[in-house]
Design a protein around this nucleic acid. Structure first.
Lengths: 121, 121
DNA sequence: ATACTATATGACTGTTTGGCGATGTAATCA
DNA sequence: TGATTACATCGCCAAACAGTCATATAGTAT
């Protein structure tokens, strides 16, 4: 019998292995979503486009910080920017982020439920 | 007619707004996935459990770095650790990460296709 | 016990990054 | 014109982090 760690070669028959370029691209997108304030902004934008001022006010962020995070998400292609006179209107450009958050939330709540159940045995 | 940025209140009728705690939890999980080497390790583990040595060898990582990243993912609950004699066998504990990566990849390839098509017009 | 192997950890470095105040810039208003 | 508003950017600081080497720890073999 072979050692315990013999690898099943491809048990899941899962995803094709990502190339280096894709790997960093994926990592970069996840990096955008790895910051609570950015998630807050995205969540707020989910209800519709908003100006920087609205975001700053409703989320109690400093204006400089909000602009910074929005610029970051703009570079990553997660949001879109439209100039409206004096203001800058930001919109979600990648709705998939909500699917991603949804998946994670679902998993996390499952996890929490399991933990609670385990404690209640 | 109201200003252009009047918010549709809930256009997507989407996700319930996450609380602060969930927000940081989600962000932390995404942070784990925001590093190419960690994604490489996860991708490698997708084929089945593996020891640190195997990971180090196949992915050409330094042993200290591999242990560090594995420890980080262990803390986050993304992988599981089992001691086998001398070695430490790591396993995926959160298969959902592959769904997440799959979604992102799909979106990124779509994006690339759009870009290519746009250039080819 | 000694030597060797496998893994984890501590210390250190360089880089990145969130947050902040201050300043720059462009559009609107008076 | 000047004043004000809205946003972006710069410079800075402190914290976090990836990567590395050296070392500690624990299991295995001799």
């Amino acid at each position: 019998m072979p050692a315990k760690t013999s690898r099943p070669a491809s048990r899941h028959a899962g995803l094709k292995p990502l190339g280096e370029a894709q790997l960093t691209a994926v990592a970069e997108l996840f990096a955008v979503l790895s910051e609570p304030n950015r998630l807050r902004i995205l969540q707020f934008l989910q209800a519709g486009p908003a100006s920087v001022g609205e975001i700053v006010e409703r989320l109690s962020l400093k204006q400089a910080n909000a602009s910074k995070q929005l610029g970051l998400m703009l570079s990553a292609g997660v949001v879109r920017r439209e100039q409206d006179g004096n203001r800058a209107i930001y919109t979600i450009a990648m709705p998939i982020v909500f699917d991603l958050c949804g998946l994670v939330c679902h998993r996390l709540s499952e996890h929490a439920t399991e933990r609670a159940a385990a404690l209640r045995v």
